[in-house]
Design a protein around this nucleic acid. Structure first.
Length: 788
RNA sequence: GCCGAAGUGGCGGAAUAGGCAGACGCGCACGACUCAAAAUCGUGUUCCCUACGGGAAUGAGGGUUCGAUUCCCUCCUUCGGCACCA
């Protein structure tokens, strides 16, 4: 890119806070601060030895107070904008790391901690959150960015948008309610319960309601007779781990509360049950159950003998294709065998009987659209959207992170640390080894401060921030890491931002990459950043696995150390091999033998350029033209492949061209202008791959001015790259029958169909005797070809 | 169950607006140089066959086409994500 005349900023920095660093420090017994900065120093050395061209002037380190001052500042800005808030809820807790985690940091169906792999548990705690859900809809839009489909799909699934309706059900007044506070139930607000459904068209089939066991209204609806079973069930549900509870194949369980609700569309009295298949954390924690058209409700209704009312009926059989399977059981009013999820017409649905229902979601479905309009008109429900996405929990009960700059006063509650007092410095004299408590809480004096409102004694927040907070804005700090009047210098921002190309692993898809997009959009609304997206082009690199096909890790002892390789083979070979040995986006297991081939190539490059066998050019014109054609074809390919991240084929093209050059020299091309051009272009193409050898050969053997890295990228001479003869095979029945040659037409843009003739296909087949005779009988086959 | 990605030699991987599959490299075999080895250079290396010739083959099976790794349909396998989300 630099050789193409762009000003490129390739910064390097260290996201040095966080569990990884802290846990490693605990293990080694070395203070995380000391350990972290020692590690950074070692990595800087490794990077330099690889010949990387980072702009070290712009290095940023998130664990440095000059950095986390602004991490804290951003927190304050978000707090002031109402995007940071504190709430009590059931949160994920890692029992090994002794901290809460964000929903994104709980991985897989075993629900393990993203850092240490320990299964997480739920705890009811009051924690700080960022209101990421406010941006859910906008985060689903990717039209401005060139990101891999994979990442977009992962983010879309993670946000999990579903369209439907909210419907209000009245809870029947229950004179004999367990709750002694009768008045609570008498008010309209509390006697209404809202449910979310994606299928409002099935409302007439709602024959019971189910609450999550933890639902706050459970006690209110439970009758004295049912109190004991309800309490028992709640206890049992609470004891179960999430994994047990969420196991899909588990048989559904639940108990009747004794209470009833009124289905607002037909005033039917329907029983209210509690069951653990309804989750408190999604929607409103209560559902309307439509057993005829929902598999889960169906299973539950069957088990507990609850009524099943069919409200969607498949179209009459004569409209179905013959032999189509019985869609959802008996149509003639009998008992359904399974829940029917497909399309059809509404029945038993009062004013909507006969309305068609298809498989579309939301308003695109005529049945759903009609019912939503009707609900809104009647005031008993409205169109609604629900997400599985949650707000971002950022509190960590850990030491090694940026302090959350908030102060709690008994009188004035929570208030941010005044901006002129930032940063809140992370003290280094704490007991940072694990005790199960927030380390900062145990510091004798650190938390003592005064309330910014009244000046009376108050306490600091002793939790620290999730490190993903640090990494949500580090691209901005690179712009001006030494700037102290703000998080970044606006002039630099205007010059560089947004990030043109961003690379990283796919594992960040629903964490860092989602957080940083949220962060950018939130800052945009605060007037701090511009544009809608922080990173325009994203490419994911694969992972280099160890030779045993496992992930490289110190504990497995299968790590290949880059500095050892550099020492053995030199930086150029290591760099080139890393580009060559696997597809960049895929990654592959390391192959320590394969690097020999790349080393051999480097030696052959060296030999070709340093052998003093440049005799007067004796090669034929054809040899020279062919050489030139190969050079420009390679140039075209290499230029293209750099842009599309196909680094492995860059190396193989350069290897091929080198082989061609050896042949051309053999044929006496050395000394000709074409030879010189080939040499120059070869080194220029080699320069980004193997910077050291390219420079050495450029300045010392070709005698060109220093530095090759400041040369401009050579343009492709399309005329020279053009093949002058193109041969197209013509095949019949998979056999090559004929060949047609024509002038090379410069690659693309061909499309002239030439009718080379007509031939009876059967005759052709018969002549080869490879085809059964009844094929294509009597037909006249026509074959064309395309000439370039 | 739902969503997504990927299946090509012993290995990493090439080739997709359809055009001689296996580029390039690893490994392996043979040869040259050498007293010898290493390095280097050269030749060969998908599989099968009555082998100067022919046949099969890009996860499996169909389809479109003169021609399919590439486009369409149905499956299978592997990996990743989500999952009682109403």
């Amino acid at each position: 890119m630099r050789m193409k005349g762009y000003n490129v900023l390739f910064p390097m920095g260290f996201d040095a806070f966080g569990l990884n660093a802290e846990n490693a420090a605990i293990k080694d017994g070395i203070h995380p601060m000391k350990r972290t900065f020692a590690n950074i120093e070692r990595m800087r050395k490794q990077m330099r030895s690889m010949g990387t061209m980072f702009d070290w002037e712009r290095e940023a380190v998130s664990a440095d107070p000059s950095y986390y001052k602004w991490t804290e500042w951003f927190f304050v800005q978000l707090y002031k904008a109402g995007l940071a808030y504190r709430k009590m809820s059931a949160v994920d807790w890692c029992p090994k790391d002794n901290t809460t985690l964000a929903r994104e940091q709980v991985i897989g169906e075993n629900r393990v901690c993203e850092r240490c792999g320990t299964p997480v548990i739920k705890k009811n705690l009051e924690q700080w959150f960022f209101k990421t859900t406010k941006y859910a809809d906008e985060l689903l839009r990717f039209d401005e960015i060139d990101w891999p489909e994979r990442v977009k799909v992962l983010q879309t699934n993670w946000i999990g948008r579903s369209e439907g309706a909210e419907v209000k059900f009245r809870i029947e007044s229950n004179q004999s309610s367990v709750d002694s506070d009768q008045s609570a139930l008498d008010t309209d607000d509390l006697s209404l319960i809202t449910v979310f459904t994606t299928r409002p068209d099935t409302l007439w089939g709602a024959t019971f309601m189910v609450f999550a066991p933890e639902h706050p209204l459970v006690d209110k609806v439970t009758t004295p007779q049912q109190k004991q079973v309800v309490e028992d069930y709640k206890m049992q549900a609470a004891r179960q781990s999430d994994i047990e509870r969420e196991a899909v194949d588990k048989e559904k369980t639940g108990v009747f509360t004794g209470g009833y609700a009124i289905n607002p569309v037909n005033n039917e009295r329907i029983p209210i049950w509690i069951a653990d298949y309804v989750l408190m954390s999604y929607g409103t924690g209560a559902i309307m159950a439509v057993p005829a058209h929902d598999e889960r409700d169906f299973e539950f209704a069957r088990k507990y003998d609850l009524p099943i009312v069919e409200v969607i009926r498949p179209e009459p059989p004569h409209q179905l294709p013959p032999n189509s399977p019985n869609l959802g059981g008996e149509i003639e009013g009998g008992e359904l065998e399974v829940a029917y999820i497909g399309e059809g017409v509404m029945v038993n649905s009062g004013p909507f009987n006969g309305t068609k229902v298809n498989n579309e979601k939301g308003r695109k479905n005529p049945g759903i659209r009609a019912v939503i309009d009707w609900l809104e008109e009647k005031g008993i429900g409205k169109e609604a959207v629900n997400y599985r996405y949650r707000d971002w929990l950022i509190s960590r009960q850990r030491y090694w992170g940026a302090p959350i700059p908030m102060i709690h006063c008994d009188v004035h509650g929570w208030n941010p640390v005044p901006e002129d007092q930032l940063p809140v410095i992370l003290p280094d004299d704490v007991e940072w080894k694990p005790t199960g408590e927030s380390p900062l809480k145990l510091h004798p004096t650190w938390k003592d401060t005064t309330c910014p409102i009244c000046g009376e004694p108050a306490e600091r927040e002793t939790d620290t921030m999730d490190t993903f907070m640090c990494s949500s804005w580090y691209h901005l700090r690179y712009l001006s890491p030494h700037y102290d009047k703000g998080p970044f210098d606006e002039a630099e921002y205007n010059y560089w931002m947004p990030v043109d190309t961003y690379t990283g692993g796919i594992e960040h898809a629903t964490m860092h990459l989602l957080y940083t997009r949220f962060f950018h959009k939130a800052l945009r609304d605060l007037g701090i950043t511009k544009g809608n997206e922080p990173m325009m082009q994203l490419r994911n690199q694969g992972m280099v696995l160890a030779e045993d096909h496992a992930k490289m890790s110190k504990s497995r002892g299968n790590v290949v150390a880059p500095d050892m390789l550099v020492e053995k083979y030199g930086a150029d070979t290591v760099r080139a091999y890393l580009m060559f040995f696997a597809r960049w986006e895929m990654g592959a297991p390391w192959d320590s033998q394969g690097i020999e081939g790349t080393a051999r190539w480097m030696r052959r490059v060296w030999t070709l350029f340093t052998d003093a066998s440049d005799s007067p050019a004796t090669a034929s014109d054809e040899t020279k033209l062919t050489l030139r054609r190969r050079v420009h074809q390679t140039l075209r390919k290499v230029t293209h492949d750099f842009e599309s991240f196909e680094f492995n084929t860059i190396i193989s093209s350069l290897m091929e061209l080198l082989n061609e050059m050896y042949k051309a020299r053999e044929a006496g091309a050395a000394g000709s202008p074409e030879w010189s051009e080939a040499q120059e272009n070869y080194l220029k193409m080699l320069a980004p791959v193997a910077p050291h050898i390219a420079e050495e050969l450029w300045t010392n053997h070709l005698g060109k001015p220093y530095s090759i890295h400041q040369q401009s990228w050579p343009p492709v001479d399309e005329a020279a790259a053009k093949e002058d003869v193109v041969e197209i095979p013509v095949q019949i029945n998979g056999k090559v029958r004929d060949r047609i040659t024509g002038p090379g037409g410069g690659g693309r843009g061909r499309g002239q169909v030439c009718r080379a003739g007509k031939r009876d296909r059967e005759e052709a087949s018969g002549r080869q005797g490879t085809r059964e005779g009844d094929r294509g009988q009597g037909q006249t086959g026509e074959f064309g070809c395309v000439v370039g």
